[in-house]
Design a protein around this nucleic acid. Structure first.
Lengths: 198, 198
DNA sequence: GGTTGCATGTAAATGGTTACATGATTGT
DNA sequence: ACAATCATGTAACCATTTACATGCAACC
């Protein structure tokens, strides 16, 4: 999903400024779904304005910088619904965590241990944020579904990591200096030490 | 994770050609982790070669095109381990599926139904591919961990979708032409029809 | 004869992140 | 005083996807 579609989606839900759209994906309704940065939101909104998919009015605020509040137009709604109706590509899983941990047998035990803990923490934080997000009660039930899906995924991730934490640490290299090779002892030398395998 | 690091990771596991690296992420050991395309693999390998992080030999094959087999060097290993030891950013969840389905109340029932089914199918296909992948048995146990994590996540996703499928379809718009507005009846008018909310 | 698999690569289009620039206000 | 929140925007950099180009072999 590109930033334009993401913005339109946010504006389907309610009028918002660029800043508020980001908050929706950071803390709010869409926090289980995606991340977007300012650097992609603001240019996206400019393009949407040129295409007449959104309109913009400026709201002056006292004590705060002015706000540009965007609203989606009927044409914008059409475009958005077309975009999400297009035949979807299968959802891709992309996890940096998995990639890193899958080389745990080359990292010192302390590193793996810290890594796992940090990942558990970050998932738990996300989970808590999702649970304590009051915004869902006001939203239509479909949005709650999405939130619950996020909850289920984070819970699975956390419980998996907790269950396998000790295993993972045991398989780590056990050396303070990680650059020499994979774990000895518990592993059958996955790759030759330095000269190139076979 | 950029393509260079991904390639190095693959080469930590075994010597491989660009083509084979892609297969590792498509079907093989890393299929639960990430996708990479040829367009990013080949340039990445060129850069790695310039940096002396990998070496390359050409293998002639009869009946098949020549192969360029890459091996990671000691310097490459160091660089790789440095890269994955860097303090990790919290794993981001990014799901196009969730985003699309969260607007199910604007889509016709048949579309939502088909959408959910297709997603279930695609997850199930991934799951089966992971289960039937024999490559894990030969790999060190940490790699099995990653695979199991993938399995757990896909299972959660599938069972969640199955459990909530009917709910989701019920909340859909129910109209053949989706462009008019959100579902009537079951939903309390999430957004005003066209003029802009509040 | 057409498709699939093996095999490498390039180029164009796209699009995103990061960092910078600016500036007021509120809380510590 | 200093950090954080609110608020918008630009530009440089980086990277990726997609499509194109090529070619042989095996299978249906």
């Amino acid at each position: 999903m590109d930033a334009k579609t993401l913005c339109l989606g946010a504006l389907m839900h309610e009028d918002a400024s660029g800043y508020e759209i980001r908050k929706l994906f950071e803390d709010g309704l869409f926090s289980a779904i995606h991340d977007v940065s300012f650097g992609s939101i603001y240019p996206a909104l400019t393009v949407l304005l040129e295409r007449d998919w959104v309109t913009c009015r400026v709201a002056e605020q006292n004590g705060r910088p002015d706000k540009k509040i965007y609203s989606i137009t009927p044409t914008g709604r059409e475009a958005f619904l077309d975009a999400i109706s297009a035949p979807p590509a299968p959802d891709k899983m992309r996890s940096e965590m998995l990639f890193i941990l899958s080389f745990g047998d080359y990292l010192p035990r302390a590193d793996v241990s810290a890594l796992v803990d940090r990942y558990i923490e970050s998932y738990a934080a996300k989970l808590e944020a999702l649970q304590s997000c009051t915004c869902i009660e006001e939203a239509p039930p479909v949005r709650k579904f999405v939130n619950d899906f996020g909850l289920a995924m984070y819970e699975t991730a956390i419980s998996f990591l907790r269950r396998h934490r000790d295993d993972l640490v045991l398989q780590a290299s056990g050396e303070a200096n990680s650059n020499d090779g994979p774990a000895r002892g518990s592993n059958p030398a996955p790759v030759a030490a330095a000269g190139g395998p076979s």
